[in-house]
């Protein structure tokens, strides 16, 4: 591994970027995830920045159930993220399908489509729980990034 790769790896470990994707959530978890970025909770103090491009992202936050149409979008987003990457599933729906698990168009939790590293429970998940999940994901991400070095 060259010097530049090591430099990039160090930078990514210190400041991983977040991508948020709403799979099929009722918005409850989404607005709580957004609330995490705003002054009262301010997840950016851990060095993370919310981005819109999967190719720039290290951590994928997924809220809501997977349905028959968005599972392809979710898989594509995951594919586009560079290695190493960490996935955080947020809310009861993201974990198992939650209250919607028996609805006709619902596949189930996020882990039916992509591997999930951190599960954050709650309906909707509280901002504190989401921050806790992100911090756990940061540790996992650093572990994965160091393993590649």
């Amino acid at each position: 591994m060259g010097l530049i790769d090591k430099l990039i790896s160090t930078a990514r470990r210190s400041s991983p970027w977040l991508l948020h994707f709403d799979c099929g959530s009722c918005n409850g978890c989404d607005i709580e995830t957004l609330a995490c970025l705003t002054p009262v909770y301010d997840v950016e103090r851990f060095g993370v920045v919310n981005v819109g491009n999967p190719k720039h992202a290290d951590i994928l936050l997924v809220t809501g159930t997977v349905n028959l149409r968005n599972r392809e979008v979710l898989a594509v987003l995951y594919e586009q993220m560079p290695e190493p990457k960490v996935v955080v599933a947020i809310g009861a729906c993201g974990l198992s399908g939650g209250i919607f698990r028996e609805a006709p168009n619902v596949v189930g939790g996020v882990d039916k489509v992509i591997p999930v590293d951190v599960y954050v429970p709650g309906c909707p998940a509280r901002p504190e729980a989401i921050i806790d999940g992100v911090v756990l994901a940061l540790e996992k991400f650093r572990g994965k990034a160091l393993a590649v070095l």
């Binding site: 709403d22 799979c23 099929g24 959530s25 809501g64 159930t65 349905n67 149409r69 968005n70 979008v73 209250i99 919607f100 028996e102 609805a103 006709p104 168009n105 619902v106």
Partner: peptide, 23 residues
């Protein structure tokens, strides 16, 4: 559309009218 569609009106078939408040 269709990325958030769950079909939750259909849940009325398996959840009773009181449980539907939560849905």
């Amino acid at each position: 559309f269709g990325y958030v569609h769950r079909g939750l009106e259909k849940l009325a078939d398996i959840r009773d009218f009181r449980q539907m408040i939560q849905v």
